[in-house]
Amino acid sequence: MIVEQVQVRNQAGLHTRPASMIVREAARFSSDFFISKDGYEINGKSIIGVMTLAAEQGATLTLTFEGEDEVDAAKAIVKIFEEGFGEEL
């Protein structure tokens, strides 16, 4: 199991488009993927779940990966968070 802490860097927060990006990216891997914020945890492969996080700019999230390709999955997901989903920071 891999646990990573990330910050939401883009201005607009985890709105519809970034949420779609996360879910699409996560779907490429077989590992389980969870995101938690302030003790509320959701399945990172569920777009509805990701949106219910209502994570705005600056929010800290904990990402948990577990499965065969957890290393690659963690790397890929953390990367899109760091790039701010290609949006204005």
Binding site: A19, N43, I47, I48, G49
Partner: peptide, 13 residues
């Protein structure tokens, strides 16, 4: 609309 399609494919849901 694409996002809405994703919601309809949301396994959890």
């Amino acid at each position: 609309f694409e996002a809405q399609s994703l919601m309809l494919k949301d396994e959890t849901f």
